[in-house]
């Protein structure tokens, strides 16, 4: 139940959507783009999102693309997590997706919606950070592509009136060996204590984590520590843990100390996947 009212638009083109935003913004309606729209409802009902106009991007063809284009995979931002997963273009992305919310909710939540979410986990971002994917963003200057590792800093850094149209990933990156582990407080559904995704590229481990801090991240210094084979496995993990880039969350799912304990175990699992149990 939303207690505020809003206008609802469903533009058929990128250009129309961008222009609509500008004009509604000028009218002071504080417009919002939606694709899946689930957060509009769940955060709107507690007034954490309030808007006077909603622009639904689900009818924009570019936002619905889901195909292999040469060496690239293109994912429309308005495709549901379920559809993206079922396509199985990108196994690590599928694995990250299947742990988000629940199956029925994933029929509604979209890839773009998860990447741009207010909810801090945004786990669909992890595989994209690891594969150095590209994001196509629409705005007044047209459709522009940005490397995700530039434009995603804690959250997707969009200017007012911009929206995410597509995710583009190099096919060869999606074929690399991976591990994706979601650890919860208890049982098999719900928010993570942490989700760790790792990719092995030519023996170098790339690591991205959600749920540990208040935003998902890929940290090069942590990766460096994990890959520093001059140290023991235990020391590599300890050093990586010492380089967590922001305060560790302390919330209803778990304490900060416990999250670190879980992270250590998770990193061991990741290293063990590629290097055997080692000395940790």
């Amino acid at each position: 139940m939303l207690s505020f009212d809003f206008e609802y638009y469903k533009p058929a083109s990128i250009d129309e959507a961008v222009q609509l935003f500008q004009s509604l913004d000028r009218q002071g309606k504080n417009p919002s783009y939606i694709s899946g729209g689930t957060e509009l409802i769940t955060l709107g009902r507690v007034n954490k999102i309030v808007t006077g106009a909603v622009i639904d991007i689900k009818a924009i063809p570019e936002c619905l693309v889901l195909e292999k284009q040469g060496t690239q995979l293109v994912f429309g931002a308005a495709q549901s997590l379920t559809v993206v997963r079922e396509k199985q273009f990108f196994p690590l992305l599928s694995k990250a997706i299947v742990e988000i919310a629940d199956h029925t909710a994933r029929n509604k939540i979209t890839l773009g919606g998860n990447i741009c979410a207010n909810i801090i986990y945004r786990e669909a971002v992890l595989p994209l950070l690891l594969t150095d994917s590209t994001l196509a963003v629409a705005g007044l200057n047209g459709l522009i592509q940005y490397p995700i590792n530039d434009i995603f800093q804690q959250t997707l850094q969009l200017d007012r009136g911009e929206f995410l149209v597509q995710v583009i990933t190099h096919k060869q990156e999606t074929e690399l060996p991976f591990v994706c582990l979601k650890k919860r407080r208890q049982w098999d559904v719900g928010y993570p204590l942490l989700t760790a995704a790792a990719l092995n590229k030519n023996g170098q481990i790339k690591l991205a984590i959600s749920g540990l801090c208040s935003f998902p991240f890929r940290d090069k210094r942590m990766e460096y520590s994990l890959n520093n084979r001059s140290l023991s496995m235990k020391a590599r993990i300890e050093e990586a843990v010492s380089r967590i880039p922001a305060p560790v969350l302390n919330d209803v799912h778990g304490s900060a100390e416990y999250r670190v304990f879980v992270l250590e175990n998770t990193l061991q699992e990741i290293l063990a996947e590629w290097e055997g149990a080692g000395d940790a």
Binding site: R184, G190, V252
Partner: peptide
Amino acid sequence: NPRLRTYVPFRYGD
């Protein structure tokens, strides 16, 4: 945690 996202009951399969 007064909601079902953060108050976690069994679901099918648990």
